[in-house]
Computed example of a mutant assay.
Amino acid sequence: MKYEREKEGWTYQTLARKMDAAGCKVAISSLNRLEKDNPPRRVNVDEVLAFCEVFGLDFETMITAPSSSEPTHIVVALQHYSDRVERLTHERGEVLRSEKQLLDRARKSSRDSIEQAVRTWSTSLRIDESLVPRFIAFLTGDTQQSPWANAIGGTVERPPGTGNLLNQETGE
């Protein structure tokens, strides 16, 4: 348990909250005794199953000592890593779809409407004021790169010749 808790960077308090959320209330002092008493206190089946759920491990992996199953723990760590990368990849796709919808809507709006919308948004969410002009420039087509492009690993590809997104017919 100590190996898994430390690998996640959790305190006893965090683990106790997660165990409680998994339906198994365990006192912080009990977690401490599990790790530090010699011999450690006994663990009941409900606790083992809750530990499995909290740490995302199968029963066999949970009851195997880390030193004797290091390759298994590497596999588990790789699974956690790949799951997180997959979630991030999915979320990035969602962000880029949202960005495309935002740009489509901005293209149909005047500069004044865009500026007003960005200022309202930034105020309501307490967005860093330095981002306001960057978002306005992005939504009006004055720049091609989203202010958050580095955070999401890219931005929506715009067709050539669509630098300024403002409606060409109305000049807005």
Rank of each mutant, 00 (worst) to 15 (best):
P71H: 12
L34K: 01
V156W: 00
I152Y: 10
P71S: 15
D37R: 06
L166H: 01
L166A: 01
A65D: 15
E91T: 09
R41Y: 13
V48L: 06
K108S: 02
I136K: 00
L15S: 04
E4F: 02
P39A: 08
N164Q: 08
L31G: 14
D58G: 08
R97C: 10
S98P: 02
A106N: 02
L96S: 04
D37E: 15
A149F: 02
K2L: 13
F138G: 00
A22V: 09
N38H: 10
Y81R: 06
P40C: 05
S110D: 06
V54Y: 02
R42H: 09
E94Q: 09
I28F: 02
L102G: 00
T11R: 12
W148G: 10
L96N: 05
T61H: 06
E70D: 12
L102F: 10
W121C: 04
W148L: 10
H73N: 15
E60L: 07
E47V: 07
R5T: 08
C24V: 14
Q144M: 12
R41M: 15
N32T: 15
S130D: 07
P66V: 11
E94T: 04
P159D: 04
T120V: 04
R17T: 14
E6Q: 04
E53V: 09
P39T: 10
S68L: 13
Q101S: 07
P133N: 13
A117D: 15
T61I: 13
V48R: 01
E91F: 14
L139H: 00
C52R: 01
V156K: 03
P159K: 14
D20T: 08
A22D: 04
D128L: 07
T140L: 01
K2R: 15
H80P: 05
L165D: 00
R134I: 04
S30Y: 08
S113W: 14
P147Q: 07
D37I: 13
V75R: 12
L139A: 00
S30G: 15
P159L: 05
P159S: 03
Q13H: 10
Y3P: 03
R105P: 00
V26L: 13
E6Y: 08
G161E: 02
S29D: 10
L103G: 00
L102N: 01
E60R: 08
V45L: 07
S113N: 08
R33P: 12
A65L: 03
E99P: 11
I63Q: 03
A151K: 15
P133D: 04
L166D: 00
N164V: 00
T61A: 09
A65K: 09
K25S: 15
K100I: 02
V156I: 08
G23I: 03
L131D: 11
Y3Q: 11
S146T: 08
A137C: 05
